[in-house]
C-alpha cells in the first residue's frame, strides 16, 4: 500500500488538493469562450457604452470601471466550471476523489479570485496611464480588489450549483444576477447621486462595498464608513460560501 493513502483527512492534503483544482481550472477554463466573453468583452463593452457621449471627468470614472471589470472577471470562472464538468461527464470522477466538497469549492473560488485579481491590473494601468487618476491609498485599493474578487468569485461558484441541462443556462442565470446588481452598485453613478430606491438597494450588493474601497484608494470620498466595507465583503463571502456548500451538496448528484 502506498503511503499517501491514509493522509486524506489532514488539512494539508486537502489544501494541496485545492491547489490542484486551481491549476486544473486555469488549464481548462480560463480560455473558454464564455469566460472570455462574459469576463473580458462584457466589461470592455460596458466601459465603451458608458464612456460614449458623456463628457465626465475621466478621473472620476476610473475606480468605477476597475470595480466593474473586477465584478465580471472574478465571477466569470465559477459559473462555468461545475456545469461544464457535468456536461463533459468529468464531474462524477472528480467528486469521487478523496477531496472534500470544501476543497473543490474553495479551489473554484480561488480560480475566480486569481483570474479577477490578475486581470484587474489591466484597467488600473489604463486608468493610471491615460487619465489624471492617481492612487492615494494603495492599501485600500488592494483591500477592495482582493476582498471584492473573493466575494465575486464566491458568488460565481454559488451560481454554478443548480443542475442545468447545459452550461449556457447557468451563464444566463449568472447574468440575470450580475447585471441588475451592477446598476445599483454605484459604479456608473456614485451611490449618493443615485435615485432613492437604488440607494436602498445598493447595500445588498457586494460590488457597492468593493467599489467604495477602490474609490477610496483613488482618493475619492467613500459613501460607506471605511471600516464597514471590508466587514461587509467578508460577511458576504462567508454567507456565499455557506450557500455554495449547501447547494453544491444538495445538487451534487443531479444531472450527472
Amino acid at each position: 500500500m502506498s503511503t499517501h493513502v491514509e493522509t486524506h483527512s489532514t488539512w494539508q492534503r486537502q489544501a494541496h488538493g485545492m491547489l490542484v483544482i486551481i491549476k486544473k481550472n486555469a488549464l481548462l477554463y480560463y480560455l473558454k469562450p464564455p469566460v472570455l466573453i462574459f469576463g473580458i468583452l462584457f466589461p470592455v463593452f460596458f466601459f465603451l457604452a458608458f464612456k460614449m457621449g458623456r463628457p465626465i471627468a475621466a478621473t472620476n470614472v476610473v475606480p468605477g470601471m476597475i470595480a466593474m471589470a473586477l465584478w465580471f472577471t472574478a465571477s466569470a470562472v465559477g459559473p462555468l466550471v461545475t456545469p461544464w464538468e457535468r456536461q463533459a461527464r468529468t464531474y462524477e470522477r472528480l467528486i469521487s476523489t478523496p477531496l472534500s466538497l470544501s476543497s473543490i469549492i474553495l479551489g473554484d473560488i480561488g480560480s475566480g479570485l486569481i483570474f479577477g485579481g490578475c486581470l484587474s491590473i489591466v484597467p488600473i494601468i489604463i486608468g493610471l496611464a491615460f487619465t489624471d487618476a492617481a492612487v492615494t491609498a494603495l492599501g485600500l485599493l488592494v483591500l477592495g480588489i482582493v476582498l471584492g474578487a473573493l466575494s465575486f468569485a464566491t458568488l460565481g461558484v454559488l451560481l454554478a450549483a443548480p443542475p442545468a441541462a447545459s452550461p449556457s443556462n447557468i451563464m444566463l442565470l449568472s447574468n440575470l444576477v450580475r447585471l441588475p446588481l451592477l446598476f445599483v452598485s454605484g459604479v456608473f453613478l456614485p451611490i449618493a447621486e443615485m435615485p432613492g430606491w437604488a440607494q436602498w438597494v445598493a447595500p445588498i450588493s457586494p460590488l457597492s462595498y468593493a467599489g467604495d474601497l477602490i474609490r477610496a484608494g483613488f482618493g475619492q470620498a467613500p459613501y460607506f464608513p471605511l471600516w464597514l466595507s471590508p466587514v461587509m465583503l467578508i460577511v458576504f463571502t462567508a454567507a456565499l460560501i455557506a450557500g455554495a456548500h449547501k447547494f453544491h451538496r444538495r445538487w451534487r448528484a443531479k444531472g450527472l
Binding site: H8, S9, E92
Partner: peptide, 11 residues
Amino acid sequence: LLSRAHLASVP
C-alpha cells in the same frame, strides 16, 4: 475521504 482514498472508479 478515507474510504475514497482506497478506491478509484471509471463511472
